[in-house]
Amino acid sequence: MTDINIVRYNVSNYRAWNQFVAKAKNATFLFQRDFMDYHKDRFQDFSLLIYKKNKLVAVLPANTLGDEIYSHQGLTYGGLVFQKEIKFENVLAIFKELLKYLNSIGFKSLVLKQMPAIYTGVFTEEIDYLMFVLKAELLRKDTLSVINLKGEQLKISNNRLEGYRRGVKHHLDVKEEDDFELFWNSILIKNLKDKHHTKPVHGLEEIRLLKKRFPKNIRQFNVYDDEQIVAGTTVFETEFVAHSQYISGNENKNTQGHLDFLHHHLIKNVFKDKAYFDFGTSNENNGLHINKGLQFWKEGFGARTVTQDFYKVSVINYSLLNNVFI
C-alpha cells in the first residue's frame, strides 16, 4: 500500500498549485497557472498534483493527445516539478507511482520535455537517470546557445563588436517598452512569415495578456534609428536566466548592426547580474539540423552549447524501477 496519491488538477487546486511552484526547486513562472492557462483552449489539460502522506511534493504540468500524455506541449520546457528538499529515493517512488497511475487509466506513454539545467538553482537530474533505467526513447536533443555570465566569459568576436560599433555610429537607441504592438506588427510577424513561413507562437493579444500577468518576467526591448523601429527582442526573465524568446530586425542588420547593438547592451548592461543569457535554440527539422548562420551569430557573443532532452517512456515499464536500490 503506497502513501503516494495522485490527483488531476482542477480550478480548486489553483492556489495550492501556484504556491507549490513558487517554492519548487525546478520551476519558473511558465509553470504558474496564469501562464499555462492562457492557451488552455488549444490543449486538453491533464496536469497532475502528487501528494505523499497528504503533503504536496510534486506537480506535472501536462496535456493529453490520444493515448499519450505530454509534459505540457504549450511550454518551452517541463517535466516533473519537485519540492526543493526532495531526495532521490522519493523522486524514484513518485515517478514509479506516476507511471503506474498513467498505465492504470489507459495511457501508453509519457513524453517529457526536460528543463535545461541552467534554469534551476538546485541539481535536478534524477529523472534523466530514471529515463536510462526505464529504457526511454530519446526523441530529440536540442541545442541552446547560452552565455555563462557568472563564469569565465569568452571574448565577443570581432564581427559582433563591429556590428555593435556600427550601431553606435548610426546613433541607435535601445528602449524598453511596455507594449508589443510596434515590434509584432512592424518587425516580427513580417519576418517570420517571409523567412520561415510561420508566425509567432504568441499572438499580440496573448503576449499582452502574459505581460499584464507577469510584468517583471516578460520584457520588450526595441531598437530605434531616429525614432523608427529597426529591431527588437522579447525577453522571458527568470531567477537565473534571461532568455530571448523572439529576436528580429529589419533588412538593415548588416548595415546598422542593430541586433549586435541590442544584444551587446542587454548582455553588458541590462542582464549583467543574471547567471545566464540564453539565446535559445538554432535547431530545425525536429532537432536534427542546426541553422549554421544563426549559431555563428550567437556564438559570436561568447555563447556555447547547453542541451535539452525530449524523452518518450512506455508507462508499462514502471516495474523496471523496482530494483534500482541494492
Rank of each mutant, 00 (worst) to 15 (best):
residue 2 T to L: 03
residue 2 T to D: 13
residue 3 D to R: 10
residue 7 V to L: 14
residue 9 Y to S: 05
residue 13 N to C: 10
residue 15 R to C: 15
residue 16 A to N: 08
residue 16 A to C: 13
residue 17 W to N: 03
residue 19 Q to K: 13
residue 24 A to Q: 02
residue 25 K to P: 12
residue 26 N to T: 08
residue 28 T to A: 06
residue 29 F to W: 12
residue 30 L to D: 02
residue 31 F to W: 04
residue 36 M to I: 13
residue 37 D to Q: 07
residue 39 H to M: 07
residue 41 D to Q: 11
residue 41 D to M: 07
residue 46 F to K: 06
residue 48 L to G: 09
residue 48 L to V: 10
residue 51 Y to A: 05
residue 51 Y to R: 05
residue 53 K to N: 14
residue 56 L to V: 04
residue 63 N to G: 08
residue 68 E to T: 07
residue 68 E to M: 07
residue 70 Y to P: 02
residue 73 Q to G: 06
residue 75 L to H: 00
residue 79 G to S: 08
residue 81 V to S: 06
residue 81 V to A: 02
residue 81 V to I: 14
residue 83 Q to N: 14
residue 86 I to M: 06
residue 87 K to Y: 05
residue 91 V to H: 12
residue 93 A to W: 13
residue 93 A to S: 14
residue 95 F to I: 05
residue 97 E to M: 11
residue 100 K to E: 13
residue 104 S to I: 08
residue 108 K to N: 15
residue 111 V to H: 04
residue 112 L to N: 11
residue 113 K to M: 09
residue 117 A to N: 06
residue 118 I to N: 04
residue 119 Y to S: 06
residue 120 T to L: 10
residue 121 G to K: 14
residue 121 G to V: 03
residue 123 F to Y: 15
residue 124 T to Q: 13
residue 124 T to Y: 11
residue 126 E to H: 13
residue 128 D to P: 09
residue 129 Y to S: 15
residue 130 L to W: 09
residue 134 L to E: 04
residue 140 R to E: 12
residue 147 I to P: 02
residue 147 I to D: 01
residue 149 L to F: 08
residue 149 L to P: 04
residue 151 G to M: 04
residue 151 G to Y: 09
residue 152 E to H: 12
residue 153 Q to R: 15
residue 157 S to N: 03
residue 158 N to H: 11
residue 158 N to E: 11
residue 158 N to P: 05
residue 159 N to F: 06
residue 164 Y to T: 05
residue 165 R to H: 10
residue 165 R to E: 08
residue 166 R to Q: 03
residue 168 V to A: 05
residue 171 H to S: 15
residue 172 L to K: 03
residue 173 D to K: 10
residue 176 E to Y: 09
residue 180 F to T: 00
residue 186 S to R: 15
residue 188 L to K: 00
residue 190 K to V: 08
residue 191 N to V: 06
residue 194 D to K: 07
residue 199 K to W: 06
residue 205 E to I: 01
residue 206 E to K: 00
residue 208 R to E: 01
residue 213 R to M: 15
residue 221 F to V: 01
residue 223 V to C: 04
residue 227 E to S: 13
residue 230 V to Y: 00
residue 234 T to M: 15
residue 235 V to H: 02
residue 235 V to I: 12
residue 237 E to R: 10
residue 239 E to F: 07
residue 240 F to P: 00
residue 242 A to M: 07
residue 242 A to R: 03
residue 244 S to G: 10
residue 246 Y to H: 01
residue 246 Y to D: 00
residue 254 N to A: 10
residue 255 T to Q: 12
residue 256 Q to K: 14
residue 257 G to A: 04
residue 258 H to F: 04
residue 260 D to F: 06
residue 265 H to T: 09
residue 268 K to P: 02
residue 274 K to Q: 11
residue 274 K to A: 03
residue 278 D to W: 00
residue 279 F to G: 00
residue 282 S to F: 09
residue 284 E to K: 04
residue 288 L to D: 12
residue 293 G to W: 08
residue 299 E to M: 09
residue 308 Q to L: 06
residue 312 K to L: 11
residue 314 S to G: 08
residue 315 V to I: 12
residue 318 Y to A: 06
residue 320 L to H: 07
residue 325 F to L: 14
